[in-house]
Structures are given as C-alpha cells and as structure tokens.
Design a protein around this nucleic acid. Structure first.
Length: 190
DNA sequence: CAAACGATGGGCT
DNA sequence: GCCCATCGTTTGC
C-alpha cells in the first residue's frame, strides 16, 4: 500500500471509494466509507484519548482498527495515520467481487447486494473479528480511469458531531447502506 | 415503503 | 449504570 491511503482521513476517505479490499478470502470494492478525524473529532473513539481498545488508531497507518458494538457486531476502520495521530476511515459497505461463495457462506440468506451492505455485515462477509484488530489488510487503489461520482452526507448512528458531512459513497451504488439516524435514547420506565 | 424495537456484551464515567 | 460508528424482524401506513 502506498501513500494514497495515508494522511488526513478526510482526504483519504473519498480516495478509498472503488478501492479493492481483500481479507479472509473475499475481495470487495469499497462503496461507502466514513472519516473519523483525529482527537478533536467528538464522534471518534479516539476523542477521549488512547485506551486499550483504540490503541491501534494511534499507531501507524495501513492497519485495521476493529471494535465490537451492540454486544454482537464488529466494525472495521482503516487507520490512515500519520503515526501517533488517530485518524481512521470506517469501512461501511462494499460490493463483493471475489470469493463470492465464501461470503455467501458467512451471510446465509442475504442477497448478494446485501453481503457487505453495512459496517457489521461487511466484517461478517470478510470474516473480520477482534482477532483481526491491528492486522494489515490487502488493499489496492481503485482500478481504471472511470471516475464514479461521489456523494457526501452526515455520518450514521452518531449522537455527537452527527452534522459533519464526513460520510462518502459512490453515487447510485445499490450496495450502499440506507441512512439511519442515531437511535433515540430509550427512556426509563418502559 | 418507513419506523419501532429487542438482542446482547464490552467500554467507559 | 449507561452508552453504544448495528442488524434483522416485526408492525404499521
């Protein structure tokens, strides 16, 4: 992996669209990502500083930061560095382009377009779990000269800094996850 | 179609 | 003890 996937997450994120990510015997074309910028971003896991969980974000670029959410799902970010600066890009969705049989096995019942449609589904399709925290995935720049149109919008599922339009996706892609605002807080007494 | 909701466990104040 | 960078199912228009 070269410099193209390193640097300011806000610049790297749109460049990752169309890139081919390979892990666990499955390759996919990234269609949707979100930027999480440094320690000043209230939406980032790194906002409150380094902990055991987010340590990988503070390391060198090119590694996966994998975390466990909602008691049952994994999400994966590509750390973009630079070393010591916890910038990362959440891998939200992709189109499976190789290893289709394996991806289907891991996501029984899912239609092909839904195999990696959403950050937890993407991890499932690629076989990513906490054991992969800190590993270096294989990632290649978007092939070809074709420049897809890119759309931007607010990040998904955040209560803090949800207004920043730091979600990027390939316009018109059927594998992009449908937008869901942050879940309302459940109230006591029911 | 959209909205509501439960599942389920680690992280952090 | 409360908060999640979610998903699949169910319910309701």
């Amino acid at each position: 992996m070269g410099d193209w996937a390193e640097g300011d997450p806000l610049e790297v994120a749109p460049r990752l669209l169309g890139a081919i990510l390979t892990h666990g015997g499955v390759s996919l074309r990234l269609t949707e990502v979100e930027a999480y910028a440094g320690p000043a971003d209230p939406g980032s896991h790194a906002y409150r500083g380094r902990t055991d969980r987010n340590a990988v974000m503070f390391g060198p670029p090119g590694h996966l930061y994998v975390y466990f959410v909602y008691g049952m799902h994994h999400c994966a970010n590509l750390v973009t560095g630079p070393d010591g600066d916890p910038g990362a890009v959440l891998l939200r969705a992709g189109e499976v382009v190789a290893g289709l049989d394996l991806a289907r096995e891991r996501r029984p019942g899912a239609r092909d377009r839904d195999l990696a449609r959403g950050p937890a589904r993407l991890c499932r399709a690629l076989g990513i779990d906490l054991d992969d925290n800190g590993v270096r995935p294989t990632i290649a720049p978007a092939p070809g000269e074709r420049v897809d149109q890119i759309s931007t919008g607010p990040r998904v599922g955040l209560r803090h800094a949800a207004d920043r339009p730091w979600r990027f996706w390939i316009t018109g892609e059927p594998t992009v996850s449908t937008y869901r605002p942050a879940a309302p807080r459940s109230r006591a007494g029911r």
